[in-house]
């Protein structure tokens, strides 16, 4: 038996779900931002200290669970990576409590060829008018109990190949990426200097990336002195003060080094620590960079030269 959902019933389903959950219908083409901000907010007060009571307090979580609807596979994969990063080696309480108070429903417009590891429910397109529902968790099973889902013996199942994306393919070869990016650093590849000249250092690439997760902390004090708040906000490798430490020393004063750090963290450190490159090839940084720096071209150039160096005679 296959659980199916009629495409035409999707709006009714999300409406029905919004009685129970805070439903966000995520439409990738309507925003530059990924869903990471729902769990790792661009700016948030983590906890507050009150002068009068001398007590710390953490904001309470909203009663209703958040339900993110409509993520594609790349975004689900990215969220899975982010979950891992925020769990290991130490749990990020503030991320996880939001994440644990949420449900993820993926809507995949092509046939799925690999098992999906993150999310609660995946809707996979099987023919022009229907999706197959695959629940991955108890919460997902609950959703599928909704009257809009039907059990069918033999629904028409067509094959919809995933649209080919060079960047997505590139991102999957994490071992090669790790080797090539390290090599490009050691060999002082001219690409870093080229990038330093054209990159605006605006940070958009990291803001829009579904996996970039570096943040900074800051204390905000109420002007009347009644309370202070520990706040965190998104940081980005390329920003001028990203590598400024207490005492004022900035150990990556050149944009070239900060830009490289973005790549190093994503492709080298991530590979060492999590066995992955922290890029799923979603294409956001490519699409929204005001300087039109194309990560696919940058990576391809590095890999091409790295491979050339391997075949070249040593000495």
């Amino acid at each position: 038996m296959t659980v199916v959902l009629e495409k035409s019933n999707i709006p009714k389903l999300t409406e029905a779900l919004s009685r129970q959950y805070l439903v966000v219908d995520y439409e990738k083409d309507k925003t530059a931002l990924s869903v990471k901000g729902y769990f790792l907010a661009p700016r948030e007060k983590l906890f507050s200290f009150f002068s009068k009571t001398k007590k710390l307090s953490v904001r309470s979580s909203p009663k209703r669970k958040l339900l993110l609807f409509g993520l594609d596979l790349a975004d689900i994969e990215a969220l899975g990576q982010l979950d891992e990063i925020m769990t290991k080696p130490r749990e990020d309480y503030f991320y996880l409590r939001k994440r644990r108070n949420s449900l993820i429903v993926g809507v995949v417009e092509h046939s799925i060829t690999m098992p999906v590891a993150t999310g609660d429910l995946i809707l996979e397109k099987i023919n022009p008018s229907q999706y197959r529902a695959v629940s991955l968790t108890k919460a997902g099973q609950e959703i599928v109990k909704n009257k809009f889902f039907k059990k069918e013996k033999n629904p028409e199942i067509l094959i919809y190949p995933e649209e080919k994306s060079n960047l997505r393919e590139l991102a999957q070869d994490s071992e090669l990426l790790a080797e090539a990016v390290s090599w490009a650093r050691v060999k002082n590849h001219p690409i870093w200097e080229k990038l330093e000249k054209i990159c605006l250092g605006c940070g958009i690439c990291a803001y829009v990336c579904p996996i970039c997760h570096c943040f900074s902390m800051e204390d905000e004090i109420e002007i009347d002195g009644s309370a202070s708040h520990r706040c965190r906000y998104w940081d980005a490798c390329v920003l001028n003060n990203f590598s400024r430490v207490a005492g004022g020393k900035n150990f990556r004063p050149a944009l070239k080094n900060r830009y490289f750090n973005w790549f190093y963290h994503k492709f080298v450190r991530a590979y060492k620590e999590y066995d992955n490159s922290q890029c799923v090839g979603c294409g956001r940084c490519q699409k929204y960079c005001p300087a039109e720096i194309d990560i696919e071209k940058v990576l391809s150039e590095i890999i091409r030269d790295y491979e050339k160096s391997l075949s070249a005679p040593t000495g």
Binding site: G203, I204, N241
Partner: peptide
């Protein structure tokens, strides 16, 4: 607030793009 509470004065380390992107 930072001034009267004795914090070192600083600018935010982001350009206008941060809030522009957040505003979609």
């Amino acid at each position: 607030s930072d001034l009267i509470n004795g914090k070192k004065l600083n600018y935010k380390d982001y350009s206008v793009c941060f809030e522009c992107k957040l505003a979609n």
